[in-house]
Design a protein around this nucleic acid. Structure first.
Lengths: 119, 119
DNA sequence: TCAGGCAGTTTCCTAGAGGAACCTGGTTTC
DNA sequence: GAAACCAGGTTCCTCTAGGAAACTGCCTGA
């Protein structure tokens, strides 16, 4: 009995897969959510501010991820002409659209931890 | 001028970081969202059904990710005693709590794609 | 002048994520 | 008996994400 061809993926399914891939390509990596979450909370942070807030991240990763996020227009980077040059990172309007996702994710993570420690 | 000690991370920040780490430890990887999304949409799917729905995944990854998800109680695996043994994967009540996140993620991904192609 | 802060960059290294292909073992249809 | 379908497991291989540590360059206050 011949089975339907390999490609019987429904269209809504295809669309969802592509959408999730798009989102993940921008948000992949260990640190993006943390950086975005931090910048959503406290706007205008410097490089060292972020280092202090995001426990565990190193300078290389932070700088690389910041570049990624800037390239994708989720954050902005402005160099201030102060005496020791400082830089301000801030979330963009576009980046703010991620707030619900990050909030949900954090909420779910906390609930998950509770449910695990309970059992 | 001495700066405040390294650890001046606010508490809400620490909590968020831990929550996001918890969530990511369970949801990390290229395929978990796809699998969960597919199982939320159509309940009770077999191994080959999932292969067909999730374009691009291979047997190794699918089987490994399914084990992970089952271990974390997000899906169930039931072996049916049919003539050629079939298996049914389904989402759990717990797994369903991820629905808002996955929906949001897919929504965001689609919107992101639109905004990128527009510019 | 020298330690320390800011903002990174560069190099080196390794574990693990993930793909391709092949194998098993049972069953049913042609 | 050959071919095909289900449900995986196994092996081999590659690539890169990510950490550690060291270095740069500028500025400032003690």
């Amino acid at each position: 009995m011949k089975k339907k061809p390999i490609v019987n993926c429904t269209e809504i399914c295809q669309v969802r897969i592509q959408a999730i891939n798009d989102a993940m390509s921008v948000l992949s990596g260990k640190w993006k959510f943390h950086i975005l979450g931090t910048l959503i909370e406290g706007d205008k942070l410097g490089f060292m501010d972020l280092m202090r807030e995001i426990e565990g991240i190193g300078t290389k990763m932070l700088s690389k991820e910041l570049q990624d996020l800037e390239m994708n227009q989720l954050i902005t980077r402005t160099v201030m002409n102060t005496k020791p040059v400082t830089v301000q990172y801030a979330i963009t309007k576009h980046g703010k659209t991620l707030e619900p996702i990050i909030k949900e994710l954090a909420k779910w993570g906390a609930a998950y931890r509770d449910s695990m420690t309970a059992s």
